[in-house]
Design a protein around this nucleic acid. Structure first.
Lengths: 156, 156
DNA sequence: ACAATATAGTTAACATGTTAATTTAATTGG
DNA sequence: CCAATTAAATTAACATGTTAACTATATTGT
């Protein structure tokens, strides 16, 4: 799409402000990356968050909600809605924890596992393409910087 | 908060899968950064997105909605709701474009400008703290890598 | 000129992020 | 043992992200 006059003017001036905004830069990078994954997720009516839950259960089936919440970086209210959605669609199944009636565990159904088997190779392929386009070395550096940033901000 | 047993096990195994997820890493980094800015935004009942719009108008008052949408990385429906919210709170004011009745421009009110004057120094301070904790050099590298990543993914 | 098309913006519908309130069950302290 | 507290999960309420549908206005092509 053609750039507007104002956009060109900003580029010439060096794109003040938002160009040195860490939240915006991280957001735009994430959006660009997600654009690669979204089409195949959409083709199966899955949100990125739903897909994260499915992958967590493939890694370890029968996780409790609180544990899924930690691993998938989802707040409890979001996970509550997501698990209800996936239950309705017969992708996951909920079981009570005998020793504590407040807790419950999620298990992948056969259908959920089949969904994973279908999507995982596409997803892996897209990740490899990103890694190739960007470069493995730069990708390693990026992961390290992001991890450092989180550690620096969360520690003190 | 204490780590669960499963979390420790994952750490020992090297945190499979999500540890090498680019979307997750970018998301966590952004969350960590936003945690630094959110308290002062919240204290003025502003969302990060509302704050982006205010900053865009400080840079250039009277921008059209479509232009704000580009600069603030907001989709039209989100911006539509945000501008209505800010109008109700007398932070921005909308004016029609004479030559095209479909378009409208946003202007900061005095109150909106005062809000910016109050928040901007806090925000700048928080940014400097992040830059100091993380290191200017690493921050530059990070900006460059993020920009490269976006360029690589959006070009082809 | 005018019908067809394109554009700007809003609204609708659904999913998630976020905080607060609520519910149910477990734990604890007296 | 039981009242008070803590904890897990859900629900509520509001804001944003996202796609599609819709409205109003401009532009266009003949």
């Amino acid at each position: 799409m053609a750039r507007t006059k104002n956009e060109l003017e900003l580029l010439e001036e060096g794109l003040r402000d938002f160009d040195r905004s860490l939240p915006m830069s991280l957001l735009k990078a994430r959006e660009a990356v997600m654009r690669e994954f979204l089409p195949s997720l959409r083709s199966h009516q899955l949100s990125p968050e739903q897909w994260r839950v499915i992958r967590a259960l493939v890694q370890e089936d029968g996780l409790e909600l609180a544990e899924i919440s930690l691993r998938c970086f989802l707040l409890a209210p979001s996970l509550s809605r997501i698990s209800q959605n996936l239950e309705k669609r017969n992708i996951v199944e909920r079981k009570n924890v005998d020793s504590d009636q407040r807790r419950s565990k999620l298990f992948l159904t056969k259908e959920g596992r089949k969904l994973f088997e279908t999507l995982a190779p596409e997803s892996e392929q897209q990740y490899l393409e990103i890694a190739n386009k960007f470069g493995e070395e730069k990708l390693d550096t990026l992961y390290e910087l992001l991890s450092d940033l989180v550690n620096v901000l969360n520690k003190p």
